[in-house]
Design a binder for these strands. Sequence first.
DNA 1: ATCTAAACGAGACGGTACGTCAGGTCTTGGT
DNA 2: ACCAAGACCTGACGTACCGTCTCGTTTAGAT
Lengths: 191, 191, 191, 191
Amino acid sequence: MISAPRRAGRKRSATAHRAILGAALAIARKKGYRALTVDAIAEAAGVGKQTIYRWWPSKAEVVLEALAERSRARIRAPGIGTLAEEVAGFLAQTFRALNGPHGTGPVFKALMAEAQLSSAFAARFRAALIDHRRAALAEVFTRHGVAPERHGLLLDLAFGPVWYRLLLAYAGLDEDFAREVAASVAHAAAY
Amino acid sequence: MISAPRRAGRKRSATAHRAILGAALAIARKKGYRALTVDAIAEAAGVGKQTIYRWWPSKAEVVLEALAERSRARIRAPGIGTLAEEVAGFLAQTFRALNGPHGTGPVFKALMAEAQLSSAFAARFRAALIDHRRAALAEVFTRHGVAPERHGLLLDLAFGPVWYRLLLAYAGLDEDFAREVAASVAHAAAY
Amino acid sequence: MISAPRRAGRKRSATAHRAILGAALAIARKKGYRALTVDAIAEAAGVGKQTIYRWWPSKAEVVLEALAERSRARIRAPGIGTLAEEVAGFLAQTFRALNGPHGTGPVFKALMAEAQLSSAFAARFRAALIDHRRAALAEVFTRHGVAPERHGLLLDLAFGPVWYRLLLAYAGLDEDFAREVAASVAHAAAY
Amino acid sequence: MISAPRRAGRKRSATAHRAILGAALAIARKKGYRALTVDAIAEAAGVGKQTIYRWWPSKAEVVLEALAERSRARIRAPGIGTLAEEVAGFLAQTFRALNGPHGTGPVFKALMAEAQLSSAFAARFRAALIDHRRAALAEVFTRHGVAPERHGLLLDLAFGPVWYRLLLAYAGLDEDFAREVAASVAHAAAY
DNA sequence: ATCTAAACGAGACGGTACGTCAGGTCTTGGT
DNA sequence: ACCAAGACCTGACGTACCGTCTCGTTTAGAT
């Protein structure tokens, strides 16, 4: 690289950036996504509203970034085992994050809802939170010699039931469910 | 007085009822759910806002009723065949309704979004649109001798991938997908 | 009249109307026109902001109506005497309203300022507060046989110095000043 | 220390100074005072906002300085004649500046408006634009032997009608008006 | 020839108020 | 009692400017 464009002017405040992400996530978790307003974020973060609008097009994107930041760290390479074991491990790991006391489950659901109401947001939602996990699981498929053209289907078979339970709450996300889904995916992979 | 005699009073206008449901669905389809406001429904239906609030707690419930009404008629007992064939047939039938030119897909997505934002609505959403189809498919399982305690899991394996594709649009809902999902469900049922 | 159009719907709330005018004038007098915001009026009047915007295009118009309402009552036909005496009496009467402890002077000044910044408001300002007094004084001129084509000039000679002192505060508005201005006007009328 | 220490540092940029005054006046005239924002001045002048706030407390003061600079040059000692003639000449000269194609009338009006909304600005407004002309006319009074204790009144009689017409636009500022006002003032002076 | 400090263009910042929109309730006169 | 119309209160929205606060750069007197 020869030179960065380096424009004049005050730099973006890292403090404000962090405070906004933190406040957004805190409010969404404590009061619920419904109570999350841009004014509330601004006040909680000690920030002007314009500072939020300068960097994010909507409050949903703020929450998305906050969640993505914390989410990214949690995805680890699954341990070694059969395909079914690895998929089950991967899903169980995801469930722990969603179920925890500071569980991100409700926030994930709210973002999924936003994604249905705004296609612009939907694209970013997928890119920041969904594609990520799909890629991690696809990597497992590759490692186990699954033909790439079947990855899309298998990912839908793996993540679909999880999201369905999360969104409609017909049953909880536990280790048994992880195993059952994983078994189903493994069979479809072999088929 | 012991009992109110239940006397006079104008009866609920069937005309207004129909007009409201029709207007809500029409707007949701033509302009998108985002453009659907209670005022817009009232104006399009030639109705006072109060008439809407008198009978429905929110606009989402109006759409829900409109959709449920049309949806109910479409669910038919699946034809005869193997479990996989019947499930595939059931799913394919659902896909046709979602994909059609006047497809209800986007409206379904919007209602699912509302269900995430309001637990009161979530219950009614499940009761009116989801439980319905689950029961129909469960009936197929029963007919094929699947143990009832596995129905919950199998339903999640069947509907989960469908909703996942619908909500995240990673791929379309076609007959191939119906067959693959059905095969996976059938295998899990036998397992 | 055969029939008023009489449309359906709730009538404009006289309570809200009065509360808005009262709150606007009270705030303008107590806290100053600078502190007068639409939100403050709405809160003080116990009214939604939209109710203000539904009936007035700006807060200045609210104050204008409030002031005009109270101002109208105060203009009385001047007593009988020479032209100079009547003009002096008329001006002195005006000064009392402007100077009083609940003096409207500062509010008048603020509205004059608004009139300079918005020509739409300027027209209404003149119609509601200025033309009024001009007409009253012109009537005096007529009664004393002053040719109508000189009224415009004489009104400017009479009101100009008053506004000038009010706006620039080089000196106060007292009875002496009223007499001096009146004398000058009377002489110009005779000239 | 007797003299200011005069420490190091870059000197005030004369270029920026001129550009700011020019931009402010240009915007006020072309787009109207309402469109005059500090950001707009800064951009038009190719200057940082801080450079404006470093030297002026508000945008009104910028315009004031710009106007005062151009205004100062125009006030000339009136020619020789009767008191009425000199006053008329003085006023007529003022009118020409206000009426011209690049007339300063609207900007004067806007500054008068600002003066009503800020007493701090009012003082500077009087000092820079008003006292100036009052002194020039008072000098005429002195030259014609008018008692100093009547100057205040006579100045109000002279300038009041002018400002009144300027602010309320009931009639234009023409030579006839100058003569009429001057005659009235001259009579009051003699009285 | 360096050092130091002020002024500079740029632009992000915390705020305040704006004017609008939609939600859900209440009132009016009519059926 | 129900209806169409429409005014009402509430609360959140996204925008416009304000006046302040960094940035990194430029300029010029002091050392």
